[in-house]
Amino acid sequence: METAGQIVSWIYQYFDNFGFLLLAGVGLILIYSMMGVINMAHGELMMIGAYVAVSAFHAGAPVLVAIVLAGLGAGLAGVIIEQLVIRHFYNQLLSSLVVTWGISLIISQGTLLLLGPSVMNMPTPLGSFSVGPFAFGVYRLVMFAAALVLIGGVWAIFRWTRLGERAQATMENPAMARALGIDTRRVYMLTFGLGAALGGIAGAMFAMTATISPFFGQNYTPMAFITVVVGGGASPILGLAYAGLYLAGVQTITSNVFNEYVGYVSVMAAAFLALLVMPSGISDFLERRRTRATQR
């Protein structure tokens, strides 16, 4: 039973790490790959989602409703930000980085001034299960499942809806898309709103495992961004999944064989190595190999 518990613990940790990277990165990669915008304010959108969810929860809303409201709230904030600022920075990766850093300062400090050090928390739902001497929180598995559902959802939207078709056309060739009568401005706005909403949902889910402060989201942004970039832009959704699989694997193994410190350093080192070996990200690397294989 001891061994079974240990094995379950490793698998559990892997899912936990993987889910963390997917949830933090899913909204970010959408905005990054579709619009060529590095959104440093993504963590703040997550923070908005967290605050909305907790407020709704304390007002008596069920957890699921609170999460949906968080998505709506962050999505709305995203659309506002897009209209006011981001629309001037499409496909300017680095300028967008600077301007969204400014936005993140405004949102987090503004929240601090507005709400002050107000008390916000939300208990972790769903209890735990045990295998042998090991016990595990159910909720973190739910987070992993939710990450898969969100990613699947995004993929489905792009694959099967009109918005998805238009978005893909816009991504491939904005000028041509415009010539064909697609309102690319609207596509961008909706994409950013969707990315922000995904961030809000992720924030609401993380809110149940952490304390919430105006700086709640800042801690997720760098790691999420590293995952997204390691994934690469060739096929963003798959890339994020690959990068998550890879980095979570490294983290789980090293943190169990050595300790959490080595695990944390190893993730960074693994990202470093992956970029050197695959200079445009994992998905691009795999795509090229596939192309080469078919050409042969």
Binding site: V85, H88, F89, S95, V99, G102, L105, I106, Q109
Partner: peptide, 16 residues
């Protein structure tokens, strides 16, 4: 308290 908030506005304003 408003120091970082103002810096954010200045950044966004300058970039816009």
């Amino acid at each position: 308290e408003i120091s970082l908030l103002m810096l954010g506005f200045i950044l966004v304003g300058a970039m816009l």
